[in-house]
């Protein structure tokens, strides 16, 4: 529990960072990358982050907390599962899976938002469509930034991506090479 709380603080700060995009900038939503890094605990982390956003800035609002937690938390869980299934330890595959999870997390969050708005009645269809369209640049930026983040973590601290630690991986590789040499010399 304390561990999730501390990591959530870092995600919270990361979501406040504005990434430049043309003449304007976008704020990251990060459901995909939170799912990739925290797995099933992502939902709780996102819920705590949303409560704090509501407390500190009024993003979301206290009466919409449940809807917002579903909107961001469920995509995070889907992305967590998707990343676990798609990545196979190969660097390129891990980065692609991370990028896909990052982009899909935001896209799914936008789709959930549009669905919630659409269920409010016919009057909200146009707003739902516009909300969906407004998320397209965020999805693009989020996909690219997630790819960079996952690539960095793969090189620096792969265990955060549920991959074997680098020293372990090197040790396994050396062991395999030694075994291969032994078998060659014995034959």
């Amino acid at each position: 529990m304390p561990k999730i709380a501390v990591v959530t603080s870092a995600f919270f700060i990361a979501s406040l960072i504005s990434v430049p995009m043309g003449p304007t900038s976008v704020h990251l939503l990060l459901p995909g990358i939170v799912g990739v890094l925290l797995g099933p605990a992502a939902f709780l982390s996102i819920a705590v982050g949303l409560i704090l956003q509501c407390f500190l800035f009024q993003f979301g609002g206290i009466t919409a907390l449940g809807a917002n937690a579903l909107m961001m938390g469920v995509p995070a869980l889907i992305c967590a599962a998707l990343f676990r299934v798609l990545q196979n330890g190969d660097r390129r595959r891990v980065v692609w899976s991370g990028a896909l999870a990052g982009g899909l997390g935001t896209a799914l969050a936008a789709i959930f938002l549009a669905l919630f708005l659409a269920t409010a009645g016919d009057n909200f269809f146009a707003v739902a469509k516009l909300a969906l369209a407004a998320h397209v640049p965020v999805v693009i930026i989020e996909t690219l930034v997630s790819a960079m983040v996952v690539s960095f973590l793969f090189r620096v601290k792969p265990e955060l991506l549920s991959l074997p630690r680098r020293e372990d991986a090197v040790a396994v590789k050396e062991k395999l090479e030694a075994e291969a040499k032994e078998s060659e010399s014995s034959s």
Partner: peptide
């Protein structure tokens, strides 16, 4: 910070480093 590839890479590394330091701090705090 610009909208180009180099900036995105730097921001990605920046966020990655923030996450690494947060996970390390998490362990120390716990």
């Amino acid at each position: 910070a610009r909208g180009d590839w180099a900036s995105l890479t730097a921001i990605g590394n920046f966020l990655g480093m923030l996450f690494v330091s947060s996970f390390e701090r998490t362990q120390r705090v716990y």
